[in-house]
Simulated assay, not measured.
Amino acid sequence: MTATTTDAPPPASASKQDITVLLLCGGLSHPPLATALNAPLLSLPQTPDRSVLGCWIDAFTHAGLGIDRCRLLTNTDGSPGTMLTPDIETLPDSGPYRGPAGVVRDAVDHLDAQGCCLIIETSRMLSKPETLSGFIGACRNRKGTISVATNPDGSFSGLIAADTEAIRLIPGIGFIDIKEQWLPAASREGFEIIPHMLDAPCYSIRTSKLYLEALRRMGRFDQASGTRVIGRGTHSIFGEPYGGSLIAKSAEIAPGAVVSCSAVGDGAVIESDAVVVRSIVGPRARIKKRELIIDSVVQTSDDLSEHRT
């Protein structure tokens, strides 16, 4: 691998780049948080008015990528990976035993894509939308290469930009992984693997702990931020103020409820005198009056009796 490079993000362009974007949202094994939530991670809130998917779309727009060239690769069996959205066209995975590289190859063939293809793990949350512009700007004119984006700490970011000729090296049958199988094979065939360090992290949100920690690092729990905070300035019995929370604007929080260091999704309802601490409340879920939710994930469901993890 060559030396890591960084590039300043170019200004957003009004013209759309001829780049195909594939968001990996399916597969045999789903992230633990998606399973606990019984919903795709893209549906989680990232800001009070934008989901994780919405923030990715903002990043595409900033980078000059046309939404018409984006596809959401997803399951069709009702599992947590299933994601249907009017914003991005859905393309079902070609099969349950193809692996992430295999479904990418099949999608490229299905779309007859040419040039550069951006591959995104949807168990990731981009901390700044403009960060993607820098990566796209660095990769746009690289022929015969595969660019692997890393976080500032050197960890894998979940973003890969590859020449479709390199993608078509992936066999048309069998289970093929990206990092363990495809990238080494492409390197042996002469495709240059180029690391690119992002100027801001692209956080993994595979587990509830990682998601809440990412929100904390992004300042979503800061009491000084613009995020709606229940219990702002109210001291607990230990004399410390409650921490803030990320609460979707469409969520309903009754007077007297306390939500601390948690994330509450679109359309969720938290009734009076309920307490939610270090937890994730899925879209449209309901927390009943005086219910105590600590270190938990509440599924995207109206029936709470069966959905505590």
Rank of each mutant, 00 (worst) to 15 (best):
D49R: 11
R140H: 10
S245H: 06
L84T: 15
C202R: 09
T5E: 15
L22V: 09
L33Q: 04
L292N: 12
S272G: 11
I170F: 00
C25M: 06
H62N: 10
P31V: 05
E271N: 14
S208Y: 08
H62L: 12
G144N: 14
P11F: 02
D106R: 12
T4Y: 04
G265C: 03
A149H: 05
P40R: 00
A248I: 05
S94K: 11
L23W: 05
V277D: 03
A149W: 08
R206M: 01
E271P: 09
R124Y: 03
P40N: 13
I287K: 02
D222G: 07
T145Q: 13
D163F: 06
L41C: 03
G26I: 12
S79M: 13
V21E: 03
L198I: 10
A200T: 15
L44Y: 05
L246N: 12
L198H: 07
E192V: 13
H110P: 11
Y97W: 13
K143I: 08
R284S: 10
V298W: 00
R232Q: 12
T90F: 02
R69V: 11
V298Q: 04
Q114L: 06
W56P: 11
A248T: 10
Q114E: 15
S51N: 12
G26V: 13
H110I: 06
L215G: 04
G231Q: 10
P283L: 00
F175S: 02
I230G: 01
A36R: 08
Q114S: 13
L212E: 09
C139Q: 08
S305Q: 09
L126N: 05
D18K: 10
G244W: 02
S262C: 09
Y211S: 05
V269S: 04
M125F: 07
N75K: 09
D222H: 14
V264G: 00
D18N: 15
C261F: 05
I173N: 01
T309H: 03
K128D: 15
D163V: 09
K249C: 08
G158N: 07
R228C: 07
P171N: 07
R50M: 11
L169K: 02
T76M: 06
D295Y: 01
R217P: 10
A3P: 15
L246H: 03
S133A: 14
I176E: 04
P195L: 08
A138F: 10
A63Q: 07
E165W: 00
T5G: 01
V108C: 01
L73F: 02
V269M: 02
A34F: 02
A263F: 07
R206D: 15
D93I: 14
Y203M: 02
I57F: 03
F156C: 05
L41A: 03
S147E: 15
D112Y: 06
R124P: 11
A166Y: 04
E180L: 05
T74Y: 04
L198Y: 08
F221N: 03
